[in-house]
Design a protein around this nucleic acid. Structure first.
Length: 882
RNA sequence: GCGAGAGUGGCGGAAUCGGCAGACGCGGCGGACUUAAAAUCCGCUCCCGCUAUCGGGGUCCGGGUUCGAGUCCCGGCUCUCGCACCA
């Protein structure tokens, strides 16, 4: 080790301490004395982490390093860079730990934050720690509560008795999004639906804008597509159907939602969701037992059981009939049976559908299974086959029935009251809607799949609601002046078991009084979900210490919106949609000045790892496999194994910790490797065998500057690098300009891997011409490297004779003219195959190039006629011959 | 099923507008230095062919457009992610 002069373990802590001490990355903002409003701003943000007990894994630093490089680069380009970090620190794990140990979740959270912070600092990330925020800080959640109060005032927060996912093991309700296949996303515990009185946020009121304004942002198309799907806009019509006879109490009938009102003539039955309120009233006595049975079974199934790839279309007839208004009463087709079936969900549309088996796959399957009529009302275009076709026997007759849900022409769609035969889909839809409207039995309607947001949790470790419940059953907000509402101090954090939240235990805290009237009041027992704090943290970073407002208008006007937001795709829908929703509400209130919070979004890929698979397909942990001659075998059974790429998991024993990497190789190597693995958006396996490669690169840089024998304690460089005014070797100078150009260009496109490769090319070149490197070149290369390997760069900068950090030095420039080659090598092709090479002057005239090319491939051209000559300047010459 | 994306050496990955496929790194092979090893430096490394300044093949598969296709078009296969009875 003695000769390994480049020693990150001494350099890196030294510079981290220097940056701390000098507050190198403190960013002044509007209102600060040293703020310069003339400089352009750049706000680059990482999705802040939940400080879990297990610390950082190697996936975290991937995105953090990328944004850090951009932040450092933009500083060198003269921007005011806002690059903060904080903690999404309310959350279930800390609470569960508190339940187990009896210690306050605050303590565990503080411990985890300290660990995370020291890990982030050890990576040399240039956050402005003076802006650090923590969602569990009363000074922060005061404003989370304040925003909730604004939502409440706008009628966007309301209490509702809703069927919610209750998780017995976690002792709380969960949002739909937190339940996957009937099990909790966190902890994988079983969950069930129960009706409870909950706070809801009316995000559906913003559905249209959340959809439309996706046009305004630069996000990956895939994420936009996911949000669009989630919002799930569909346009169609609401149609009212009368129920035959006196079975319907109000005589109002019921409404359905359909996207295909043009298929109204094809309705052969109706379906109500089993929970539909009308079912009881319309069911005939002879069908009641069957209907009751069916409803009981359906009630035990969750939405997901009902939707889960369930090919079986169950349902029962209610005995009642509806009237199809497009047929006169005496037309038998006007009388359609009403069924209940669990393929219709109460939670979407009106909970009832008109079934058109000739035009809808699900209705078709149901009709086939239950022997219902199927009529064709849309003729597929010539040459197009129906989507489904089934031969069936019914009433002793064999018939072929078909289903077509594409665009076609209306057929069999005529009656004395309405005719749409021959119309194409769009025209037919418009005609039917107009007709329904004239008769007052329907109208155009837009529906969304998006539901209102279940906003309460039965937890301790979350923001208390600023709400008081009065004895008359009404509720009111806690006045803004009395915020924050802080949670009571507890020692026992366990749920009470009777579905009461843990806050109910603090009876002194719960019992309070109306601050205006003095009347007795009870505090809200629920707390907000973890999403609340992350809905607006990016705004608080702009002005984190403001005690009079969530943030100042000036700060928001200057810093907003976020120029670049980087995080994992797992937040594609929930966090990003919730935050956009709050932001739009704040926009409507005039609190923020931009319609969208995150102008540009970038999803980093996942850091994966290796694992092994045996012949049966079972996954084998890495410690049970070994390599021999490029093949892999099981350590014990000697079975051959296949190496696969898998997610990091404890069970596969393939999790890497950044701490180990930093200890062994240093933070700069870690940073470089994270960026060199591949494109940031790609998911790539973590391969520790590749670490020495980037480490060697940094060593080479070191040797370029520092004479052998210096152990990193003294400021020494090659004497030549302290001499001003040496003439640059033209080729090395050109190589440097090339590197500067490539790195600059690649940073603009966030292609960190190829930027690093460009620096490697330069360093390889410079190593070969070691003695040629001048001071001027050495200085420029250090600044080029600085965003990527800041510790090493700072150290070399100091050795080159500077006292201050290079953080605010200018980014190096390149000269286009220098990059122009005097001579270029062209490939000479015959019929598209490379047959020779020529070297010509870059500005050589075309005839001269062609002559040279002909000579180069003379043997290939012999006896052939040249039909065409193609010259691509700077690239190649191609002869087409016969 | 629907939507989005991907498929390039032994491995991670390059190839900016349709123009020399495989930059850079890992691994491998060879050499220099060394008593030796490590470290370092230099060279070679897509595959096949009598090891080569030559020829053939080659970017998931099959077609097409073009002087020229990893890149564009059509059809298919595989994988990843998201949604999934949303009427």
């Amino acid at each position: 080790m003695a000769r390994q002069n480049y020693d990150p373990s001494t350099i890196e802590p030294r510079w981290q301490a220097f940056w701390d001490e000098h507050q190198t990355f403190r960013t002044p903002g509007p209102g600060d004395r040293d703020f310069d409003p003339k400089k352009p701003k750049y706000y680059v943000l990482d999705m802040f982490p939940y400080p879990s007990g297990s610390g950082l894994h190697v996936g975290h630093p991937e995105g953090y390093t990328a944004t850090d490089i951009l932040a450092r680069w933009k500083r060198m380009q003269g921007y005011n860079v806002l690059h903060p970090m904080g903690w999404d620190a309310f959350g279930l794990p800390a609470e569960q730990h508190a339940i187990k140990t009896g210690t306050h979740p605050r303590e565990e959270t503080a411990k985890n934050i300290a660990r995370f912070k020291s890990q982030l600092k050890s990576l040399g990330l240039s956050y402005d720690w003076s802006r650090e925020i923590n969602t569990t800080d009363p000074g922060y959640y005061k404003w989370t509560q304040w925003i909730f109060a604004r939502l409440y005032e706008k009628g966007l927060a309301y209490l509702a008795e809703v069927p919610v996912w209750w998780c017995e093991a976690l002792g709380t309700v969960l949002a739909n999004e937190e339940v996957i296949d009937g099990r909790s996303e966190r902890g994988d515990h079983p969950c069930e639906k129960r009706p409870m009185r909950q706070w809801m946020l009316r995000i559906t009121a913003y559905a249209e804008r959340l959809l439309d304004d996706l046009e305004l942002v630069e996000w990956p198309e895939s994420i936009k597509a996911m949000q669009r799907t989630w919002i799930g806009k569909s346009e169609g019509a609401r149609i009212r159907f009368a129920v035959e006879g006196a079975r319907d109490p109000d005589g109002d009938g019921f409404e359905v939602f359909t996207t295909r009102p043009d298929t109204l003539f094809g309705v052969t039955y109706m379906v109500l969701a089993p929970e539909h309120p009308l079912v009881d009233a319309i069911t005939t006595d002879d069908r009641r037992a069957a209907v009751e049975d069916y409803r009981r079974v359906a009630a035990q199934k969750s939405d997901l059981d009902r939707t889960d790839l369930n090919k079986d279309k169950s349902g029962v007839f209610t005995g009642a009939y509806a009237q199809n208004p497009v047929f006169p009463d005496d037309d038998p087709r006007s009388r359609v049976p009403i069924w209940i079936a669990d393929y219709v969900l109460m939670s979407y549309g009106t909970g009832a559908i008109m079934a058109v088996p000739g035009g809808d796959d699900r209705d078709f399957d149901f009709a086939v299974q239950h022997g219902l009529d199927i009529v064709t009302v849309v003729q597929p275009p010539a040459g197009t086959a129906p989507d489904k076709s089934v031969e069936r026997e019914r009433n002793g007759v064999t018939e072929t029935v078909t289903c077509f849900h594409g665009e076609g022409t209306a057929v069999h769609s005529s009656s004395p009251v309405l005719t749409i035969d021959g119309l194409r889909k769009q025209d037919a839809i418009a005609r039917v809607i107009a007709w329904l409207q004239e008769r007052g039995i329907g109208e155009a309607q837009t529906n969304y799949r998006l539901r209102d947001w279940l906003f309460s949790r039965q937890r301790y470790w979350g923001e208390p609601f600023p709400v008081l419940h009065l004895e008359d059953g009404t509720h009111r907000l806690v006045p803004d002046a009395m915020l924050p509402v802080m949670p009571p101090e507890l020692t026992d954090f366990a749920p009470s078991g009777n579905m009461e939240p843990p806050l109910a235990k603090a009876t002194d805290w719960v019992q309070t009084s109306d601050p205006d009237t003095g009347a007795p009041a009870r505090r809200e027992l629920n707390t907000m979900p973890q999403w609340a704090g992350s809905c607006w943290y990016y705004l608080r970073f702009m002005d984190p210490h403001n005690e009079d407002a969530a943030f100042s208008k000036e700060a928001e006007r200057y810093w907003g919106p976020i120029d670049l937001y980087v995080g994992g795709a797992e937040h594609a829908v929930l966090h990003l949609l919730y935050a956009r929703f709050w932001h739009k509400v704040l926009f409507d209130l005039g609190v923020v000045s931009t319609k969208e919070p995150f102008q540009r979004l970038f999803n980093q890929g996942m850091v994966l790892s290796w694992a092994y698979k045996d012949a049966r397909g079972a996954l084998i942990p890495v410690d049970e496999a070994e390599e021999k001659d490029g093949k892999f075998f099981h350590v014990k059974t000697r079975e051959p194994l296949e190496r696969i790429v898998a997610k990091m998991s404890k069970s596969l024993k393939n999790v890497s910790s950044p701490d180990d990497i930093i200890e062994r190789w240093g933070a700069d190597t870690m940073r470089l490797y994270e960026m060199f693995m591949g494109p940031l958006e790609a998911s790539t396996p973590w391969n520790p065998d590749d670490l020495p490669g980037v480490h060697r690169f940094l060593q080479r840089v070191w040797r370029l500057y520092v004479p052998e024998g210096d152990v990193g304690e003294v400021a020494v460089v090659h004497p030549a690098l302290l001499r001003e005014g040496d003439a640059d070797d033209p080729e090395l100078e050109k190589a440097l300009h090339k590197a500067i150009q490539k790195v600059t260009h690649d940073l603009e496109r966030m292609q960190f891997n190829t930027a690093i490769s460009a620096m490697m090319v330069f360093v390889n070149e410079a190593t070969k011409k070691h003695d040629a490197l001048t001071r001027s070149q050495a200085l420029r290369f250090v600044t080029l490297l600085a965003p990527f390997a800041p510790h090493l760069a700072e150290d070399l900068w100091r050795r080159l004779g500077h006292d201050a950090s290079l953080t605010y030095e200018s980014w190096p420039t390149f000269d286009e003219k220098l990059l122009v080659e005097a001579e270029v090598e062209l490939a000479v092709q015959v019929l598209g195959k490379v047959r020779g090479k020529i070297v010509v002057a870059a500005d050589a005239a075309q005839p001269a190039i062609v002559d040279a090319a002909k000579q180069a491939v003379a043997t290939q051209l012999e006896g052939k006629t040249i039909v065409k000559e193609i010259v691509v300047p700077g690239r190649l010459v191609n002869f087409v011959v016969r």
